[in-house]
Amino acid sequence: MGYSNKSTGYPNRDRGQEKQVDSLSGARLRHDPLFLCFHALAGAALLFIIAPILGLLLHSSPSELTETAMDREVRESIWLTLWTSMSATLLLSVVAVPLGYVLAREKFPMRGFVTALIDIPIVIPHSAAGIAVLGLLGTDFIGTKLGIMAAMAFVSVPYLISAAREGFAAVPERLERAAFTLGASRARVFFTISLPLAWRAIVSGLILMWGRGMSEFGAVLIIAYKPTVTPILIWERFGEYGLSYARPLALLFIGICLILFVAVRVITWRGPNVNR
């Protein structure tokens, strides 16, 4: 990190140039057959992600899109999806961020087991996750917004915990120790050193969790068919009216998600830089 070239005596040397030397973009390496092969494979991987979305875009007409966007049911559903997932993310962050910190810093028996436990919601079938959450909450929560939020939170919170854990783990412990010797309390050290330095990773985690919550289908379907979140509305329209009716809604929802993610990234871009 930033410390390595301190003794060069060139305080403002161009870091960009330095990176070039380290990266694999050197001319000789670029013509290596394996490297060319990797480029081709990387392109294929990217295409696999972009092609379906591009297909959606090409098959939808602007008039269809505006018509869908004017639909009251659609707008209510998108709004519901956005805010429930956002609320679930913010509420859970109050416990998920401290958990990430504990997992990154404290040494306790079965830490590895606990870390693995956190990923369970990601690997189990989401309909099963919905059943599990419903079992915990009770049937009173069927069809409620709180129920939707609980289902979203359950399946998406591992992303935030993992991101926070990695973010805190990347903060050198030496910095916290230095702060202790300067007389700072644990709380002060957490809020002025650890949290600001892990902030980028945590924001990434928040965005991931929010996005994962919005896209949740299975677990939410178990708990609340109505009010209808957008993923369920897309499925409903597809089932009732077919592909051409579901497609503009899918495109609209994807577009809104993308715009929001880019916006959050841009807003937090100038936050404190951790990995110096």
């Binding site: 050198p172 030496r174 330095l197 951790v274």
Partner: peptide, 19 residues
């Protein structure tokens, strides 16, 4: 506690707060 001892500590690699 570390805080109450009132010792100043300087690390070899400085450990300055980067932010």
């Amino acid at each position: 506690s570390i805080q109450s001892r009132g010792f100043g500590f300087v690390y070899q690699d400085q450990a300055l707060f980067p932010h």
